[in-house]
Amino acid sequence: MTTMYEEQYVWRLPVRVYHWINAAAITVLFLTGLYIASPLMSSPPGEATWYHGMAWIRLIHFATAFIFIANFVFRLYWALFGRDNYARFAGFTPWKPAWWGQPFKDQLASYLFIAKEEPNYCGHNPVAALTHFLFVFCGSFFMIFTGLAMYGENNPGGFIDTLFGWVVLLFGSSFAMHTVHHLVAWVFPVYLVLHLYAVVRHDVVDKSSVTSSIITGYKHRVEQCPELFAD
């Protein structure tokens, strides 16, 4: 057990900056992605060279994609080498049976209204960690690989195509890859719903000001918090 004091500095600046870049990038990628798939309207009649509507949307998608990738890579670096307790992946070991032990069960039980106690964590609770991992981490990975494979098709035999072209083979065809890239894109809005709800709910239930914490970095309230794993 550790004690959390009034003002606990949880989210350090790099994490907060990462978070908001990530949130913005995903929003832009999702919206431009949908637009790419179903362009709403045609440009008015005239010469094709007068307009660049679709080209712009695609450019924004691609440019944002590279920001998103860089940000993601930074977060990976920060998690692995960041010396930031709350941002490290150290405790996240779902391949070890022990990880699925009591803390995880308690948290799940509480979310499912089976247990009365609401555990309160300074960083991520284990269920949140798992959700982040599945949706944000795996989702991003998937979108980056499929996205780069598609992007590489613009220049067959080029650098990106050479590195990521093989991904197409996993899905059979370029079209199939578009379809899965598009399908998995929906993971993010689903996650957002879960995420926002969880954040707001925690604020309401344990009054820990989680919501503002991702801006200020500080969580509030004094409490005994169980440690997921002692290092």
Partner: peptide, 26 residues
């Protein structure tokens, strides 16, 4: 993909709403 995605988001929202009610009741 869009139909599936929209249903999934709808489902998530509905689930969260239900959970919110559950939380309130509890």
């Amino acid at each position: 993909a869009d139909k599936i995605g929209a249903v999934a988001v709808g489902g998530a929202a509905a689930g969260m709403a239900a959970h919110a009610i559950g939380t309130a009741v509890k």
